[in-house]
């Protein structure tokens, strides 16, 4: 009954979400990903060392 396409999903997101909502969600996800995968600060790096080995993340 609906033309359910990727384009529709984008359009729906654009009409129902404010840019602030989109930005905050994306920033939160990016911050989480950056901390888990890329953070090179020695103490954090060392503490997450076993996890990064277990997950096969390159930057360890």
């Amino acid at each position: 009954m609906t033309a359910n396409t990727v384009h529709d999903r984008l359009a729906l997101a654009r009409t129902t979400l404010t840019p602030t909502q989109v930005l905050s969600a994306l920033l939160a996800v990016a911050a989480l990903g950056f901390t888990l995968v890329m953070l090179q600060e020695p103490t954090a790096h060392e503490a997450m060392h076993n996890f990064r080995h277990a997950a096969g993340v390159v930057c360890h």
């Binding site: 888990l36 060392e46 060392h49």
Partner: peptide, 25 residues
């Protein structure tokens, strides 16, 4: 080089927590 400054309990705990957050991410 790893395992220098932090006690194993801390790095093990942070690694487990990171594993949970990895799933959430």
């Amino acid at each position: 080089d790893h395992g220098g400054g932090l006690p194993a309990v801390v790095s093990n705990g942070v690694s487990v927590l990171s594993g949970v957050l990895w799933g959430v991410f």
